[in-house]
Write a protein that binds this DNA or RNA. Structure first.
Lengths: 327, 327
DNA sequence: CTCGAATGTGTAACCGGTTACACAAAATAT
DNA sequence: ATATTTTGTGTAACCGGTTACACATTCGAG
C-alpha cells in the first residue's frame, strides 16, 4: 500500500505539502502541486480514509434510523437518503430501531464512537436524553419536533383535512376514522386534520385507534363494521390500515366504493396495486428524505441554515375506492 | 477523551498490557487485569474503534448491495441482514446499485478503502472483474452462482414447478407464464421449473417475458388477455407482476379466480393485502438474509465453512386467486 | 540442580494520515 | 532601503490504538 510518505518522497516534497495539496488547504506552489500530482498518478496513490478519520473525526458516514425498514413507508425514504448522500460523497448506515429506545440509544452511541458524521432519525422519542446530549448533527423525519433539531415532515394536518373532505364531498353520511397510535406525532396531526374537516360538516363520525398494521386493522375494522352497519366511509391514517379495512369490507361482502368509500394516507406503492386502487393522501416520501439529507449534510459541513422546519406538501391521489364526485 | 495511555497510567501498567487485557490476547496476570479493569471503570474509558481499525483493517461494517431497496423483495432481506449483523456486533451499510455495474464497482471500491469487512450482494454480475479481484469476503444472495462466492438462494426451480402444479391441479387448460428478465438467474430457474411441470401435462401454455414491475406487467398482461381470450391461468415469476396481472384482469372484467387463476412468486407482504389474496410461492426472504449474514461473518472471522451453496426452501401460500382444488 | 518452556510485562515502532509551528523567500507597503 | 505581509515548505507531534520484540520471572521436567 502506498502511503503519503511514498508520494512525498517521489515528489521530492514533505508529507505536509502532499497533504495540503490533497486537501486543498494551505499554500502549495504550482511546481509542488505538479510534482505531487505526478507522483500520485505514478504510484496510483489512494488516500486512506480511516487514517484521515482518526484525525478529523469525520467519516462521511451518516446513520439512518427507522423503526422498521419492512414498513412500506421507509424503503422509499431510505432510497432518497441514499441517493442524495451518494451525491455528496456520503454513505448510509441503516438502523432498525423497532421504536425501542434502548436499541436506538445503542446505535447512537456505537456509531458516534465510530465517528459517524450525523443522523437522520424517524423516532417518537426525540426528546429522550440520549438525543439532547448528542452533540452531533441530527435531522428528524416525519415525527416529533424538538427545538434544536431540524425536522422534515408532511403537512399531516392539512392532508388529513383534505382526505376527509374527499369523503364528505362524495356524500358519506357516517365516517369511521382510523386514528393512528397516540404516541405518534403525525398520527395526532392527522387526527386534528380530520377533526378540522368533520367538525362543522354535520356528518356523523366515529374514531377508533388502530395501529399501522394490516392484520390488526382488518380485525378492528371487521368488528366495527359488524357493529355499525351504517358506516359508508372510512378514512384510515395509513395506507396499510386502509388495506386492512378494504380486506375486512371484502370479507363482509361490502362493496367498495358503492356501499363504502375508503381513503388512506401515505401513498405507498401498494395503493395502486390494489383493486380497486386506493384513494389516498400521498406523502412525497422521496422528497422528505432528500430534503432531510441535504439539511443534515449542510449541518455536518457547518453551512448555516436558519430554517428549522421543513414542510412537504401532500397530494391527493383519487383512485377507485372513492366514487366520482358529482352526484 | 480518555485514551489507552490514561488507563495505563492510572492502572500502573503499560499500554501493551491494557491492550492485551482489552483484546483478551497474550498474557495478562490476574493482578494486572484487576488494576486495568478498575482504571477503565473509573475513567469511563471507551476504546476508539477508528484508531483500532487503522491497525487491524477491520471495522465491523458490512455492505449490503441491493438493486433497489424500494423493490418490495428487499426490505425484509435488509431487515434480516441488519438483525443478524447486530447480533454479532456488525453494522450494515446500505447500497442501491440499480443493477448498474459502475455504481456497484464504485461502492465496492469506496467501502473497501474504508476497511469494510465484507459484502452481501444481490447482483447479476458476480462474474464481473471487480468481484474477482476483491480479496474481501463476499456472499451472493438470490442470484448468480460463482465458483468462489458462497451463494444463498431459494430453490427457484422446484418452487416454480410447485406453483405451476397449483394451476394444473385446479384445472387450468391454458396457462400464461410471465417469465422474468432473461439476465436474471432466478428468473431462468423459475422458467425451467415451469417447463418441468408443464411439459408432460399436455396443457397448453404461453410464455411472455415480463419485468418484475407492476405497471409494465399490467400493460403486457392486458395485451395478452385481449389477444388470447382462453387463458385461464397465469403464473407470474414475481408477486409484483402477479399484481399487475390481477389489475389487468380486473380492468377487463375477468373474474379471479372463477375465470382466471393467478399464482405469484416471492411471498411479499402485499400478497395478502390484495383482494382476493394472492396465491404464491413464498420465499423465506428473512431466512435467506439471515443465513447469508451468518455465512459472511463466519468468513470474515476466518471460521472455516466448507459449504458453498445454501438453498432455502420455498413454501406454497394458497390464497384467493386460485380455487379450491377438488373438482 | 539445571534448563527449556510458559508466563508476564514494557518499550517503541507502526497503522497512515493531519496540522501547529518555525522558518525562509518573495511581494508589498512605507 | 527597511518593515511588514503574504506565500511556501518542512519537521515533528499527534490522532488512539496494536503488536513485534526484548527481557524477566516462574514452573515443571529430567
Amino acid at each position: 500500500m502506498t502511503t503519503i510518505r511514498d508520494v512525498a518522497k517521489k515528489a521530492g516534497v514533505s508529507v505536509a505539502t502532499v497533504s495540503r495539496y490533497l486537501n486543498d488547504s494551505g499554500y502549495v506552489s504550482g511546481d509542488a502541486a505538479k510534482a505531487v500530482a505526478a507522483a500520485v498518478k505514478e504510484l496510483k496513490y489512494e488516500l486512506n480514509p480511516v487514517a484521515r478519520s482518526l484525525n478529523t473525526k469525520k467519516t462521511n458516514l451518516i446513520g439512518l434510523i427507522v423503526p422498521d425498514i419492512t414498513n412500506p413507508f421507509f424503503p422509499e425514504l431510505a432510497r432518497a437518503v441514499e441517493d442524495v448522500a451518494l451525491t455528496y460523497g456520503y454513505t448510509v448506515i441503516l438502523c432498525n430501531s423497532d421504536e425501542n429506545p434502548e436499541k436506538e440509544k445503542n446505535y447512537l452511541e456505537t456509531l458516534k464512537k465510530k465517528y459517524i458524521d450525523g443522523f437522520i432519525v424517524t423516532s417518537n422519542q426525540l426528546d429522550a436524553p440520549h438525543y439532547a446530549n448528542m452533540a452531533l448533527p441530527i435531522v428528524a423525519l416525519d415525527r416529533a419536533i424538538n427545538e434544536h433539531i431540524p425536522t422534515v415532515a408532511s403537512n399531516n394536518r392539512e392532508g388529513a383535512a383534505m382526505g376527509t373532505r374527499v369523503l364528505l364531498e362524495r356524500g358519506c353520511k357516517r365516517i369511521l376514522f382510523l386514528r393512528g397510535p397516540e404516541e405518534l406525532n403525525p398520527a395526532n396531526d392527522r387526527y386534528e386534520g380530520f377533526m378540522d374537516a368533520i367538525r362543522n360538516s354535520g356528518v356523523e363520525y366515529d374514531v377508533v385507534v388502530c395501529p399501522f398494521h394490516f392484520a390488526d386493522s382488518e380485525k378492528i375494522v371487521d368488528r366495527v363494521l359488524r357493529e355499525q352497519k351504517n358506516i359508508d366511509g372510512i378514512f384510515a391514517s395509513s395506507d396499510v390500515s386502509a388495506a386492512g379495512a378494504l380486506k375486512a369490507a371484502a370479507k363482509l361482502g361490502i362493496a367498495v366504493p358503492d356501499e363504502l368509500q375508503v381513503v388512506g394516507f401515505d401513498g405507498i406503492a401498494m395503493g395502486e396495486m390494489l383493486t380497486p386502487g386506493l384513494t389516498t393522501v400521498a406523502q412525497d416520501v422521496y422528497k422528505m428524505g432528500a430534503i432531510a439529507t441535504r439539511v443534515l449534510i449542510k449541518r455536518i459541513e457547518n453551512q448555516v441554515e436558519e430554517q428549522h422546519f421543513f414542510e412537504v406538501p401532500v397530494q391527493l391521489k383519487i383512485r377507485g375506492t372513492t366514487r366520482s364526485v358529482e352526484k
